[in-house]
Design a protein around this nucleic acid. Structure first.
Length: 862
RNA sequence: GGGUGCUUAGCUCAGUGGUAGAGCGCCUCGUUUACACCGAGGAUGUCGGGGGUUCGAAACCCUCAGCGCCCACCA
């Protein structure tokens, strides 16, 4: 085989560009839907809607792609379902902002033109994100995301809507919903972010004289819509007022005083103003007492139709104006300011959300949520890590009905048509409403269609082969922050549409990326990391490995540039090691030599490799990416580079044995396969050069080889490592330069005699010249002994301090061992293996202490 | 208010019953057949406090303290 040589330095940018082209051209990333291989399907979260790769998105992709690449190497038929990014409000907002720059609003364009414009923007931005993903090594073909709004999905949306409607699970009702006056649409509960804001709590006197009552409020302006004052039925203070009416100031209406259990007598004055059209609680009170609903704000949150001087004022202007008037009238009896309370904000634009009475479409969630909870409770769906399951349950067990209509233009139109006499006609696929009907102008919540993803992308409602083969999907990978938005909803609809079969078997949740101090990243704080910029500096592999290495299931990771630099260093190390190995003849041609015939070091590295493969495989299968990376890292850097290659340098100097060349080639070959999912580019470049193989993407995943397990061998090398460290430490403490060669004698187990020269090489110890060897220092570990002739005297102070430290440590170990062994309880109850281990430890420390004492004595007498 | 997690080396975090770990940082030394994005060596911890269970606890239980996240209609 003709082996190419690796260049001494590598350019990550070049490798990334050329290899990705190679993979795409070769079609490695195209799922083979008709293959007989075991199906593995993975549902991916949406790429970022703004068309920019964020670090959080990068983490998603890292984890997905590790799984995808690994499963493919394991011989699975991998199908991925890239998540929808049809985030209604966000997308619409981006395009509206663009329009605003041109001095236009969506109304200037009209609905049809506006939607076209959004499409255009989406196509442009998805091109940008696709390019970024590819640089990153993502093996998903993100062009599939175009299905988001296409006919296939529309059919699925129509089908599920009609089925839910027919099952009585979709209804239209007048309710208090969260209204964003800027986005001009209803938003669902989870699209509201609550924050502790400064406000004011005002105590206002309604009515006059004896017939007055004081209420407390933070939203004064809503008093224009008040239709009652409520008190607790058992509140003695107000008992005689219940049932009477009172004059509402400013509006000068008579409103009743009612009794309702909801009122907390402890809060404020124990009397509450009731505004059924502008507060969810008040709405319910209003329902119970048949109160009138007075809507006093229009969709832009401007006071309207109250017949007062405040009409035409914005809600916040009105608030100030009303306070002023009330104060002038002497109706404000007390005020707390600032008053910190929880205020809802629109997640997308941060505008204060206004609870508004409005007619909207809802999904009746209770039966669906019950099924979703049961699927996890009875183990049909597994949440990884399990510790996040309570979060899921908390949500599905207490879910409110879901408001699904949005007053937007970008999204799936609600398939409901109204007749001239208020008839309702729901259109399924290929159905047309009767003439004269008009369609509901609203669109569906983003997550309504997104919830269909695991089966709509497979062709549902048609029973396609793909659907049969890949549903339920194997795994959903996403951050825990999206559990409620997307995951729960896929569960609800999946179970409903697919007759109780959940959309995925495993929900694998990862955490969020934070800054180096564990703080949330945000652009305003300036601690956000731009993955693209860092990719330019450190390479895509470094970003990927860093993210993988930090990805403990379900928990956040702190990310600093230093970590990425460390990963880059690791890649470089691997490059240099492979290059060095190849220069010295590492090869993959020919059969791997019989294990028993190999020398101790070769057996050791194979044994370590075997262990590494099985551990990494198990960890990746259980989504323990961080621990898998840790093991890979230490095998490659410590075992392979620091020990195997160092101990082999002596052999390299002459010529490495053929068997060892084959072993080294094998170890690298397997290691590169193992690392490919976490560092795809570097490993591909190295592996194809080393093996001449076509590509790691289609290479087989390494299999552990139990016959290479060699516990005794590993123990022996451990002793080699210890004695070498011991000599190095001695040299260091004595201030002997690394380059200075010392004469010395070796005593080693027979099996290891042939490695004397390797150890001499590493330690820079020469064979003594005949007749003039005067050992002035002896170092021992286990069966190994090394005598050194230092020629000049040993630095007594340094050596004394070194030995004393060793002695103290040995004494401590001995003490704890003795305490344990002389403890009757321990001897009676501890498992035999532990007792044996402690006994061995005691023997060893005894020996060490004797040896160190002898040396100390020798030192002082010298 | 409900749920949930965390507290281990200077920093960020692993470890979940048997002698306290990693990466980065720090100190000393170092151009040796790859690699200074490197090598060798070193220092640093009453594992948040207090109880308990156990022969044995960083780990299991209770409790206190601090921090965080999610959810929730408190005017």
């Amino acid at each position: 085989m003709s082996q190419r040589e690796l260049p001494p330095v590598f350019s990550s940018a070049e490798i990334e560009a050329s290899l990705y082209e190679k993979w795409v051209d070769a079609g490695y990333f195209t799922p083979e839907a008709n293959s007989d291989k075991v199906p593995f399907s993975i549902v991916l979260p949406p790429p970022n809607v703004t068309g920019v790769l964020h670090i959080g998105t990068a983490l998603d992709h890292t984890i997905q792609d590790i799984l995808i690449r690994m499963k493919r190497m394991k011989g699975f038929n991998v199908l991925w379902l890239p998540g929808t990014d049809h985030a209604g409000i966000a997308t619409q907002n981006v395009v509206e902002k663009q329009l605003a720059k041109e001095g236009l609003s969506r109304h200037d364009l009209g609905r049809e033109e506006f939607v076209k414009r959004v499409w255009r923007w989406k196509e442009e931005s998805s091109g940008a994100i696709l390019k970024q993903m590819r640089r990153f090594g993502d093996s998903v073909d993100w062009t599939r995301e175009r299905f988001t709004m296409d006919e296939g999905l529309s059919n699925a949306v129509l089908t599920i809507f009609k089925r839910l409607y027919d099952a009585g699970l979709i209804y239209r009702a007048e309710r208090i919903i969260n209204w964003c006056p800027r986005c001009m649409t209803a938003i669902s509960d989870i699209e509201v972010d609550h924050s502790e804001d400064e406000g004011e709590l005002l105590y206002i006197r309604y009515g006059d004289g004896k017939d007055s009552i004081v209420v407390a409020t933070t939203r004064v302006e809503t008093m224009l819509g008040d239709t009652a004052v409520a008190v607790h039925p058992d509140d003695a203070r107000y008992a005689d007022m219940i049932g009477k009416t009172i004059t509402l100031p400013l509006a000068n209406r008579q409103i009743p005083i009612i009794a309702d259990e909801h009122v907390d007598p402890e809060f404020g004055t124990g009397a509450v103003k009731v505004t059924p059209a502008h507060d969810p609680n008040d709405f319910e009170i209003g329902q119970r007492h048949s109160l009138q609903n007075i809507v006093m704000l229009n969709p832009e949150a401007v006071v309207t139709g109250t017949g007062t001087e405040f009409d035409g004022l914005d809600r916040f202007e009105a608030r100030m104006a009303i306070v002023e008037v009330l104060r002038a009238q002497g109706r404000i009896v007390a005020e707390k300011r600032p008053y910190i309370h929880s205020v809802g904000h629109c997640q997308r634009c941060d505008t204060t959300v206004e609870p508004l009475l409005s007619k909207q479409w809802f999904v009746k969630v209770a039966p669906l949520a019950k099924a979703a909870a049961d699927a996890v409770r009875n183990g049909k769906v597994k949440i990884e890590p399990e510790s996040l399951a309570p979060r899921y349950f908390e949500w599905v067990d207490n879910m409110h009905d879901w408001c699904i209509s949005r007053q937007l233009w970008w999204g799936h139109r609600i398939p409901v048509w109204y007749g001239p006499n208020g008839e309702i006609f729901v259109t399924g696929p290929n159905e047309v409403a009767p003439a004269g009907y008009f369609q509901d102008p609203d669109v569906l919540d983003t997550w309504f269609s997104s919830a269909l993803w695991p089966f709509s992308t497979l062709g549902w409602p048609v029973q396609t082969d793909d659907l049969k083969k890949f549903y339920p999907t194997s795994v959903l990978v996403t951050g825990y922050d999206i559990l409620f938005f997307w995951v729960v909803r896929m569960m609800l609809f999946g179970l409903f549409a697919m007759d109780g079969v959940p959309p995925f078997r495993v929900i694998a949740l990862h955490g969020l990326v934070r800054d180096k101090f564990g703080k949330k990243m945000s652009r305003s704080k300036g601690n956000a990391i731009d993955p693209l910029e860092l990719m330019d500096i450190y390479g895509a592999d470094a970003i990927r490995f860093t993210l993988a290495r930090g990805a403990n299931p379900g928990s956040d990771q702190a990310l600093a540039e230093e970590w990425i630099a460390g990963s880059r260093n690791f890649g470089t190390k691997l490059w240099n090691a492979t290059r060095f190995a190849m220069l010295n003849g590492a090869t993959v041609s020919g059969a791997l030599p019989d294990f028993e015939s190999l020398n101790a070091i070769d057996r050791w590295i194979l044994s370590r490799l075997n262990r590494t493969i099985s551990e990494v495989g198990a960890l990746l299968d259980s989504y323990e990416f961080a621990r898998a990376c840790e093991i890979i890292y230490h095998f490659a850097w410590d075992d392979l580079c620091d020990w195997y290659l160092e101990l082999s340098k002596d052999a390299f100097a002459s010529a490495m044995a053929e068997d060892s060349k084959r072993v080294l080639g094998h170890v690298l070959d397997q290691l590169l396969r193992l690392m490919h999912p976490v560092m795809p580019f570097i490993t591909e470049a190295l592996w194809t050069t080393l093996t001449g193989g076509e590509s790691l993407v289609i290479a087989e995943w390494p299999k552990a080889n139990p016959s290479h397990h060699d516990k005794d061998g590993e123990k022996l090398i451990l002793q080699v490592q210890e004695i070498i460290s011991e000599v190095r430490r001695f040299r260091n403490d004595q201030g002997i330069k690394t380059s200075q060669r010392i004469p010395g004698q070796f005593y080693a187990p027979a099996e290891f005699a042939r490695y004397e020269s390797a150890m001499r090489f590493v330690l820079r110890i020469d064979h003594p010249e005949e007749g003039i060897f005067v050992p002035s220092k002896t170092l021992m570990v286990g069966e190994f002994k090394i005598e050194l002739d230092l020629r000049q005297s040993v630095d007594i102070v340094a050596e004394h301090s070194r030995l004393s430290k060793d002695l103290a440590s040995a004494m401590r170990d001995r003490e704890t061992a003795i305490v344990k062994l002389s403890n009757d309880g321990f001897m009676a109850k501890a498992p035999e293996s532990v007792v044996v281990e402690i006994r061995e430890r005691l023997t060893k420390t005894d020996m060490d202490i004797a040896r160190i004492n002898a040396q100390l004595e020798q030192l002082t007498s010298a």
